[in-house]
Computed example of a mutant assay.
Amino acid sequence: MSGEQVMSGPPGIAPDRVEHAARILRAGGLVAFPTETVYGLGADAENVGAVERIFAVKGRPPTHPLIVHLGGGHQLSEWVAEVPDAARRVADRFWPGPVTLVLRRGRRVPHAVTGGVETVALRVPDHPVALAVLAAFGGGVAAPSANRFGSVSPTTAAHVRDGLGADVDYVLDGGSCAVGVESTIVDLTGAPTILRPGGVPREDLEHALGCSVSVRATSAVRVPGQHPSHYAPRARVVLVEPDQVLGHAEHLAARGRRVGVLVPPEFAADAGSRAAHRIIVVPHSTAQYARRLFGFLRDFDRHECEVIVTSVPAPDGLGLAIADRLRRASGPRT
């Protein structure tokens, strides 16, 4: 299929756009669509050829699993070998919403989706456009973020167009994503474990499950978002302590580097007097920070910064997800 023009418009759902997207999915094409987290690059999860095309378009390793998006929690049992009580509790509490469950793969799930492993990641997105497409399509849609592998995730349709261009058959414009970071991935094949922090905080999961939930940076269970370098802008990201951000940025600027700075809010008053090519003050609200994080990173690239200096927030609430994205954005690149 050849690429089609992005159809812009308000976040409302136009039936003809939704049905057009569903037709493309049925034909084995790729559709970029909005979710509450980031834009996804979707294909029929049961069409191996379409799924393999996702990997080719993104440049994504075939061993890196995809998330299957469902239209409702009632479909969960169709895609997994069994539904543990913990999975039902999390789904009932947070779906539709930014949490992904890792469970034992059902026969319906091809190994192309799971990267060859016997677990599958599933979620129900909380976005009217995504839910309308899933309802019209009727099946599961495998969808990673709609960008090249390892780069900054897209939170607008324009980001998708800029990053993937004509490699996508259709882009549904649903406005800016409300959450701004990917879903929390929780492994429920054993003791509840967060494998990727995201839009549902650890504290909320613990409350719903009535037990502690550990967080692992790496795991034997392969899931999206665990690559050491991920979510990365073109500029190199350097992480320092909060009180060292402005000083380190000045040091690099004095050496002739084009420096972008993400300034912690408590040091905002000092930011205007410091030397840097581009300075952005982090919002006080972690929800606002998460929503705008990927936009900030893209802004630094747009201003041709060579290096971005920042710090990570406290690892509570959405701060845990923001810290994860920044650490991986600063990871070693090949």
Rank of each mutant, 00 (worst) to 15 (best):
Glu36Gly: 00
Gly139His: 12
His227Cys: 12
Gly73Met: 11
Asp243Thr: 09
Arg60Ser: 13
Ala157Cys: 09
Val113Cys: 09
Gly138Cys: 13
Pro283Asn: 07
Ile279Asp: 02
His159Gln: 07
Phe55Leu: 15
Leu101Pro: 00
Pro332Glu: 15
Val109Trp: 01
Ala32Glu: 05
Phe149Ser: 14
Val120His: 01
Pro11Glu: 04
Leu293His: 09
Val237Gln: 11
Val221Lys: 01
Val312Asp: 09
Arg302Gly: 13
Leu41Gln: 04
Ala220Tyr: 02
Ala287Asn: 01
Cys305Asp: 07
Val309Phe: 13
Ala45Val: 06
Glu250Thr: 03
Ala329Pro: 10
Lys58Pro: 09
Gly331His: 14
Gly180Ile: 07
His277Ser: 14
Ile54Asp: 03
Ile67Gly: 06
Val120Cys: 04
Ile279Lys: 01
Ala235Glu: 10
Gly225Ile: 14
Asp85Gln: 09
Tyr231His: 15
Val309Gln: 08
Arg333Gln: 14
Arg255Phe: 14
Val168Phe: 12
Leu195Asp: 02
Gly73Lys: 14
Pro315Thr: 14
Leu205Pro: 02
Tyr289Pro: 01
Thr100Arg: 06
Ala32Pro: 04
Val99Tyr: 02
Gly163Pro: 01
Val281Gly: 07
Arg88Ile: 10
Met7Ser: 02
Ala208Val: 09
Glu266Asp: 06
Arg274Asp: 00
Gly190Met: 03
Ser212Gly: 13
Tyr289Leu: 15
Val263Ser: 06
Ala136Tyr: 06
Ala56Leu: 15
Thr310Leu: 13
Ala142Leu: 12
Val80Ile: 03
Glu304Ile: 02
Gly198Met: 07
Glu52Ile: 10
Phe294Lys: 00
Pro228Cys: 13
Ala146Cys: 11
Asp169Val: 08
Ile54Lys: 03
Ala232Glu: 10
Ala268Phe: 04
Gly97Ile: 00
Glu78Arg: 11
Leu205Lys: 02
Leu188Ile: 05
Asp173Cys: 05
Pro65Asn: 11
Pro228Lys: 13
Ala43Tyr: 07
Pro98Asn: 08
Val282Lys: 07
His277Glu: 13
His251Thr: 04
Glu241Ser: 15
Arg107Glu: 14
Cys305Thr: 00
Glu4Thr: 03
Val215Asp: 12
Ala143His: 02
Gly40Thr: 05
Arg196Thr: 04
Arg255Asp: 11
Trp79Ile: 01
Leu101Ser: 00
Arg216Gly: 04
Ala208Asn: 03
Pro224Ile: 15
Leu195Gln: 01
Thr63Gly: 11
His127Gln: 01
Met1Asp: 08
His251Asn: 08
Arg234Leu: 15
Ser151Val: 10
Arg327Tyr: 10
Val141Lys: 00
Pro233His: 11
Ala14Ser: 04
Ala143Arg: 00
Ala158Pro: 01
Asp316Glu: 15
Arg161Glu: 13
Arg148Gly: 05
Ala14Ile: 00
Gly71Met: 10
Trp79His: 01
His207Ile: 02
Ile308Pro: 06
